[in-house]
Design a protein around this nucleic acid. Structure first.
Lengths: 138, 138
DNA sequence: TGTTGACTTCAAGTGTACTTGAAGTAATAT
DNA sequence: ATATTACTTCAAGTACACTTGAAGTCAACA
């Protein structure tokens, strides 16, 4: 089967990122599309996979700078695998911590919602209860 | 027992926010410290609790604008409880979604780490395996 | 052939949540 | 008394990750 190619507009729709972002990522060295005889970019299915992976990494909180490091290391071959693993592992731990924190804060918000809903049924003095409530989280 | 009061420096240490942030929050209407005869702010234990709650709300992703709404509604009394619950509930759902997304992305990163660690043991062709690996997430 | 739409580069602008700096007054410590 | 620290306001600056605008070239279709 022949290789499918995408110009920036088509690729943009395919991966769900605006053209501007694709150019920006290219400027930053995260993607390297090919260029045709007229100087227009085109992308392949390989690029779709790669962008997908980038988005997963970004989705765990990886920064542009770290992503750039990763790309650089990847281009340098297997010798840099330890660095890459270290980076991924740090990002992983950060994401895990973030989830824990989110869960904890979420728990407070859930309690507060419950408390308000109780208040909608039976009218209690707000200030006193709010204090009492908050004391549980100090 | 007499009421403990804190000037901004002491309060800053107590709640873990820089003075500048405390002034900023005040400008934005999130906190209302008292002022002494010399025009200097002071805070009470009430304010500590309130800041604590604010930080929990921010920790779930609530924006300044939403926080301002919340404060405004709170000042307006019980009639605005439905709005407050609606806001908290939206913030709650956003946080839950964010956690789910983080978990999903984290899963990809964990697999990738495992894969790299396998690669450190047995040398496999990177490009082929990377492709194969990525195909599982399309 | 013309016009619409997609593409190009490069610089400047945007939003969010602070953070820093300037310039000065007040309180505390030696 | 004086030096140091804490405080004040207000405006401007910062970081991050894009996003938009200007000014122009190229391609596709009626």
């Amino acid at each position: 089967m022949a290789e499918t190619i995408y110009k920036i507009g088509a690729f943009s729709k395919k991966v769900g990122l605006p053209n501007s972002t694709l150019r920006y990522y290219e400027d930053e060295g995260l993607i390297k599309p090919h260029y045709d005889g007229n100087g227009q970019r085109f992308y392949t299915d390989q690029d779709i996979k790669w962008i997908g992976f980038i988005l997963h990494l970004k989705g765990t909180g990886m920064r542009m700078g770290e992503l750039k490091d990763y790309v650089t290391w990847r281009a340098q071959g297997d010798a840099t695998i330890p660095q890459r693993v270290e980076l991924l592992d740090r990002v992983k731990r950060n994401a895990e911590d973030e989830i824990k924190e989110l869960e904890a804060n979420l728990e407070i918000v859930r309690h507060k919602i419950d408390w308000y809903q109780g208040k909608l049924d039976a009218s209690i003095d707000e200030d006193e209860d709010f204090d009492h409530y908050l004391q549980r989280f100090q």
